[in-house]
Simulated scan of single mutants.
Amino acid sequence: MAQQALPQRDPEGTQERLTARLGKPLGAGRTVHGVALLLPGGRATGTGRPSVLALAAQRPPARRLAAAAAADGLVVHVVHYRRSGWNGSAADPVRDAEWAVDEVVRRYGDVPVCLVGTDMGGRAALLAAGRPAVTAVLAIAPWLPPPGPEPEPVRQLCGRRVLIVHGTNDEHTDPDLSFRLAQRAKKVNRDVCRFEVHSDGHGLRQHRAEVRALAADFVRGALFGHHFARPVADALAAPPPLGLRMPLASGFGASLGY
């Protein structure tokens, strides 16, 4: 697979950067029509280098997503965080995600962006959605804070299509918290849905193929106007709680070529 190295832009001396372009290189006459930014997981606290394993875990889904939407002109990048942790009010991954969106605009111009976050990256994706270029957010097993005096904001999701995916047996990040956030988000934005992966855990390993197919279908529909698969369209249209507890069927995507 050919890769094109991208120059770093680091005005503040930090180490934020995007990985090399994934998927087939754009040929003559081809332009970038959309970008997916993958935001890896991490830890609650940590100022050291992010885990190499966390970055490596994003490469297979990044390649799968790039291949699924290559004909649409999709470019996929995995965002490299400056630090390994969320770090309380610093919310370091959110700052990195916002930087990455701005960098996409600088490099590619006015193209739609989908933030695809896993674990801690899922929370970062949801919070960084307010950047004007962001049109869609996919949060996979998002790590969310417990209920507190100040609830997690959701108004930044207005005008975006939002999909949350969570395993019902997740012991690392609480699926009930993502359901509650989806409920609140649905009140201010009708284009919110949530899929439950029954009996699966945090890594969603038992239904990995279905989750990746769901991601591809959502990104292609949200960024490029393709018709969503029937379950996704139904979940977006259904009133809560139906559209927020949509089961991800075994074999999803098999007939769609993903």
Rank of each mutant, 00 (worst) to 15 (best):
A124V: 06
R95W: 05
A91L: 11
S199R: 14
R59D: 11
K186W: 00
G148T: 10
L204G: 04
R212K: 08
G201E: 12
L55N: 10
D96F: 01
V165W: 03
T45F: 13
A237P: 05
S84D: 11
D174F: 07
L256T: 06
S84H: 06
H226F: 05
R82Y: 06
A44T: 12
T19G: 15
D217K: 01
A90M: 08
V197C: 00
V35L: 05
A133I: 04
L248S: 03
G48N: 04
P93S: 05
L244P: 01
W143A: 15
E196Y: 06
P239T: 13
D96I: 05
R64E: 15
L127Y: 08
V35M: 06
S178D: 10
R9T: 13
P241N: 09
D234K: 15
L126P: 00
P247N: 01
F252V: 07
L126H: 00
T14K: 14
L244K: 02
R63Y: 06
E171W: 10
A67E: 05
A5W: 06
R64Q: 14
L18N: 06
P11Q: 11
P240T: 08
G73Q: 02
L244T: 03
V219W: 06
L256V: 04
H207I: 02
E16W: 14
G257Y: 01
A182K: 01
G203F: 00
G41C: 03
G167L: 00
G34H: 02
E150W: 12
V134S: 04
P11K: 09
T118Y: 15
D119L: 04
L214H: 04
W143V: 02
V76I: 10
